[in-house]
Amino acid sequence: MPSVATYATLAEAASAMTPTSRFLAGGTLVMRDVNYGDQGFDRIVRVPDPALKAITPDSGRISIGAGVTMAGILASRDLDFLWPAARAVGGPAIRSMATVGGNLFAPHPYGDLTTALLALDGVVHLSDSGQVPLDQFLVNRAGLVRSVSVIRPAGDAFRFHKVSRVKPKGASVLTIAAWLNRSAGRLSNVRIAYGAFAATPVRVTAVERALEGASLDQAGIAPALQAATDGLAPVDDALASGWYRAEIAPVYLRRVLLGEVR
């Protein structure tokens, strides 16, 4: 069984990490691996620092501590735009445990919240005070996360929808998050992300480009639907084939963009 090392601060923990250490936040990922005899790590590192649970609004953005749970998001009025994404994660018991930081490391097909954070221009703040855009962070998923900062979307500019076969709780076949920023009535600098589509949640830059300057109606989004899977390689898994994911992506993208599903 792995040993457990507890540190007072994230900085101390970061300097104590070894290649065979795993950082434990809510436990839903790491303890599962312990139970199944994962021999890839021999040490669990944890930091029960309440500062990691801070939620701090800062002008047009908001910083969410890595230790904030899904239940913590649902209890915060400042994070009401993330409630649909937090509700999409597991049942109530998982939501009491699973953290924002942990979700960034969740393997496919998990990471529904991360998909939302990606569409909201997520920036990952690391233990060494460095910061990295979330899409870059997801390439290697390295380092200890202190917090994630995201845009606070205005009105109905943020859309989120999870497609799963099992109701009310099931793993995602496709999760779509969209930040539909508008300027003078036209879409501008929008951000679209898919979860459970590739190995990690991904931005869909082809769709973002196709929506630049478009109107948010059937005709305006048509080029974006044509580009719904451009540049992406949908994955096969036990829930759905890559072919199926590619087939449903433009259908649900249309519904999300036109507000037909929330």
Binding site: G27, N35, A93
Partner: peptide
């Protein structure tokens, strides 16, 4: 299940539901 999927191990910790099999 031992992986936080089935809920059979649910207990309340400080009044909130938790999965005891994945609680350190």
């Amino acid at each position: 299940c031992g992986q936080g999927t089935c809920g059979a191990c649910t207990v309340l910790i400080d009044g909130e539901p938790h999965l005891s099999c994945v609680t350190l």
